[in-house]
Design a protein around this nucleic acid. Structure first.
Length: 514
RNA sequence: GGCCCGUUCGUCUAGGGGUUAGGACGCAUCCCUUUCACGGAUGAAACACGGGUUCGAUUCCCGUACGGGCUACCA
């Protein structure tokens, strides 16, 4: 008795799971769900579990499971238990494996025995016919429920002998939840508060499919119980089926052990309406890593390959539908963990903002040292056939980074560091170029050639001296002659880096071309 | 259609019975700069609508509109 009381009064250990289906690449909405679970678990010193919900064999996609694991790794939201992250006390963590152990069957039978579930033998044709009939009769919500089940072929309508015979003959059947006709079902959601639904709106959900696999509805409940999950967190699209789940817990006698529920708001498309899809016309990826769908042959861009930093990606995601309650936006993972709570998650869906997403990455980009940036930029330059030394690349990074949002932009932003221009900004030329200006620049060339200690400072000083003699020289024009473009990095630093010979050569070339 | 959930600047959001309704992204202007950016300053920009409740509602309640989700032997 004493033990019973102390167990009940003890707070359950915090354990959250992320439970995706391996039906494709992990969408950024899924990443956010995983992130919130991770943050909460870490904040409370709990566990974060990865469970793979592969009960739909027809939708299984090769490589999806591995993709999910790699994505979580890249994002730095690693489970401490589950598929791909080491088995804990509740292995296996893949539902198809658990099914083979008979885990779900047991619970389904318990519900049958207690009279809360029944066998249904209807074929898909019969089900279609039933729905058509109901639609024709203008029934508002055609579904298999307390009323319609009376006209279907199941263990509630068929004589006991026949049911036994059908089962003995291995006639395909499903097990359905017997939902009462008219009962208020009330449940609490951490984010939404109390939600009430009448059971007349809830259909007799299939619990066990004819292939012996459980549906999501049964499987996730069984696993959440067996894995001692404290908080069931998922997207808002699950809210309508939550009443069914409450009933299952109740009929299993597990309402006391039921995890707390949290339904996250959806991430919406930047423009127009609806859920974020696999592609967005903003051009930003919807997946953490590149994803290739074997079945459709389509490939999708990933944040990683687009030059995003994982810290920036999860920071952006965390602030989509959540905030710390103060004005902080740039937050490290540690700060996110420290500040996170489901109470501060918004109820309404959030439109994904591509511009702000870029801004997040830019903020993190600026925090990196030039040396760190060079490490990442170097290989990208090599791909372009550029083999400058590390010192050069570091300085290049210093000069270009303030304009960049992504590592992958560095080359495009500063290709003139590596290649002499072939064209010259037309606007600037049209506005500033004439015979007199040309003459001035021709006189400037030997001044540059005469500089012995070639660096940004002497360049600056000697340029001033040259102007005293030759008159004012337009710096933007100088920039265009050497880089070809009207804007770019700090001019003298740029000239210092590419070197005297290169500058002089480029100037001479420009003077012959213009 | 039915059921459920939601609604503060264009977007992400803070706030909450009495506020000049705050911040961020983006946008505009100005300053700095003989180039380019960063940076700084300033500005435009919101409580969906209609009824209640109240001395007073953006905030609480009810409707309406709008948006979203669900409505499978998919998750």
């Amino acid at each position: 008795m004493f033990l019973y009381i102390s167990l009940r009064s003890m707070e359950k250990r915090v354990r959250l799971r992320f439970a995706p289906s391996p039906t494709g690449g992990l969408h950024m909405g899924g990443v956010r769900t995983a992130l919130f679970c991770y943050l909460y678990a870490k904040k409370h010193g709990g566990d974060f579990v990865l469970r793979i919900e592969d009960t739909d064999q027809t939708r299984y996609v090769n490589g999806a499971e591995e993709y999910i694991i790699n994505s979580l790794k890249w994002c730095g939201i690693e489970p401490n238990e589950g598929v791909g992250f080491g088995d804990g006390p509740h292995a296996p963590y893949r539902q198809s494996d658990r099914k083979n152990l008979g885990i779900y069957q047991k619970y389904a039978e318990q519900l049958i025995n207690s009279g809360h579930a029944y066998y249904a033998f209807d074929t898909s044709e019969e089900l279609d016919a039933m729905r058509k009939r109901l639609e024709a009769a203008k029934v508002a919500a055609p579904q298999y429920n307390a009323v319609t089940r009376q006209n279907m072929r199941n263990s509630l309508t068929l004589p006991e002998d026949e049911v036994k015979k059908l089962l003995a003959d291995h006639t395909p059947y499903v097990i359905r939840l017997k939902v009462p006709r008219n009962e208020e079902i009330r449940f609490h959601d951490i984010i939404r508060g109390w939600v009430t639904v009448n059971s007349s709106q809830v259909d007799d959900k299939v619990l066990l499919k004819s292939d012996g696999m459980p549906t999501y509805h049964l499987a996730h409940i069984v696993d959440d119980i067996e894995m001692q999950i404290s908080h069931a967190v998922r997207g808002e699209e699950w809210l309508p089926s939550a009443p069914s789940h409450i009933l299952i817990y109740r009929y299993l006698g597990l309402e006391e052990q039921m995890p707390k529920l949290a339904h996250l708001p959806l991430i919406l498309k930047p423009d127009g309406n609806g859920k974020l899809s696999k592609r967005d016309k903003s051009g930003l990826p919807m997946f953490p890593l590149n994803w290739f769908d074997e079945r459709t042959g389509e490939s999708y861009k990933g944040y990683r390959e687009s030059g995003f930093m994982p810290e920036a990606f999860i920071n952006m995601l965390a602030l989509l539908g959540w905030n710390p309650g103060d004005n902080r936006e740039i937050m490290s993972k540690e700060e996110l963990i420290e500040s996170f709570s489901f109470e501060r998650v918004n109820k309404s869906g959030a439109k994904f903002d591509p511009e702000k997403t870029k801004w997040f990455n830019q903020q993190y980009l600026r925090k990196k040292t030039d040396a760190e940036l060079a490490q990442e930029v170097m290989p990208l330059l090599k791909e372009k056939g550029i083999t400058k030394d590390l010192m050069f690349v570091e300085e290049f990074c210093r000069l270009v980074k303030e304009k960049a949002h992504f590592i992958t932009e560095f080359y495009d932003l500063g290709s003139y560091f590596f290649e002499a221009p072939t064209t010259y900004d037309e606007k600037v030329v049209a506005k500033k170029w004439n015979a007199e200006v040309k003459n001035t620049f021709e006189k400037l060339v030997p001044k540059f050639e005469a500089i012995t200690n070639w660096n940004s400072q002497t360049l600056h000083d000697d340029f001033q001296l040259a102007q005293n003699e030759l008159g004012k020289i337009d710096m933007q024009m100088l920039r265009v002659l050497i880089s070809g473009v009207a804007g770019g990095a700090q001019l003298f630093d740029f000239l210092a880096l590419i070197g005297k010979d290169e500058v002089v050569t480029r100037l001479k070339t420009a003077l012959t071309k213009l």
